[in-house]
Nucleic acid binder design. Structure first.
Lengths: 173, 173
DNA sequence: GGGGCCATAGTCCGAAACATACCATATGCT
DNA sequence: AGCATATGGTATGTTTCGGACTATGGCCCC
């Protein structure tokens, strides 16, 4: 059975055309890794599995490092396309924020909020920068994902800012 | 070394006083599990580890099912309190939304958006209901976590709604 | 009072995932 | 030539994860 990691690999190979695990690693780092990271060791293990199951085909560089180059088979292309057009009835994602966990179990809100706030502001800034850089360029998918990321970072900033600055109490004014 | 799962267990045992794994499972389901779930098999394995490391102590029910009852040791209480007051310099959480992944790799936004939208609306509704039920009751931690959850669910609803209804295009009006 | 059923309660296990350390090759600089 | 750095890949020991499986107790109904 294919996992999300499988589809990340299939999707990227489709995107790049023919790729080595190392290239996948680099692409992920600057794109999808922002909302779904994959440890690099998986990027060697997963293509091997996908080759065994007939979703990818493998070719070996002739000289040099003799790197493995993977590309989609018809079977792989079908699987990817079926996945794309499947209803997204997956379970909803969890927040899984360690800071929130501490908060839940009684940590001091202000203390947590201050460090978290900075980190999220930074992240938000980097996303907005990227949005400004490559706004409008197709395809639309990565752009929409970035929009989603920005929305959630804004929400985190709002949330932590409100806890970091207790003066903004809606009752006290 | 203690993991997030460890602290969830320690935190809940602190909260409940003395608990069996099964009770932990139930508490998690209705509280912290909303943003950080733990597979139930871990709730048998983790207390055993924590007992070995001296953070919990174990007692056996006398008759009946002879269930294991765990409670905090002083060592465990100290670890929990140290964790609570530690700066939250953990890595930021990832969205890891399967729907977003499909979107990223070219799925039809409207198709994905419609199913996701419903699911998030439902979730949001259930959170708001809970907020109305036990608003104000201390402790504050769970309540703040619920607030965070509501914020992010609202954000998801906003995001998917905008994709589900293409008429709200800001350019076309 | 005994049989069946449901909720409770717990164990077990193989397959992945993970972090991380290690190894190897190329490239360019001094 | 020697060395640092980035590139590229492998190997591996632990955890985690799901999910299948087992068992126990309480309760209702006949």
């Amino acid at each position: 059975m294919l996992t999300s990691t499988s589809y990340i690999v299939l999707g990227l190979v489709d995107w790049i055309g023919e790729a080595t695990p190392y290239e996948l690693k680099q692409r992920i780092a600057e794109t999808v890794g922002n909302f779904w990271s994959v440890p690099h060791s998986q990027l060697y293990a997963e293509p091997a599995r996908l080759t065994a199951s007939g979703h990818l085909s493998e070719r070996r560089e002739r000289g040099g490092r003799r790197r493995r180059l993977f590309s989609l088979t018809d079977h792989g292309r079908e699987a990817l396309s079926a996945w794309r057009s499947q209803p997204a009835d997956d379970p909803l994602p969890e927040l899984r924020d360690p800071g929130l966990l501490r908060l839940f179990f009684g940590a001091d809100p202000q203390a947590i909020a201050r460090t978290r706030l900075h980190a999220h502001q930074e992240k938000l800034r980097s996303y907005e920068e990227r949005l400004a850089r490559d706004s409008g360029a197709p395809p639309r998918g990565p752009w929409l994902a970035l929009e989603a990321g920005i929305g959630h970072e804004r929400e985190w900033v709002r949330f932590w800012a409100q806890l970091a600055a207790p003066t903004s109490d809606p009752i006290a004014g």
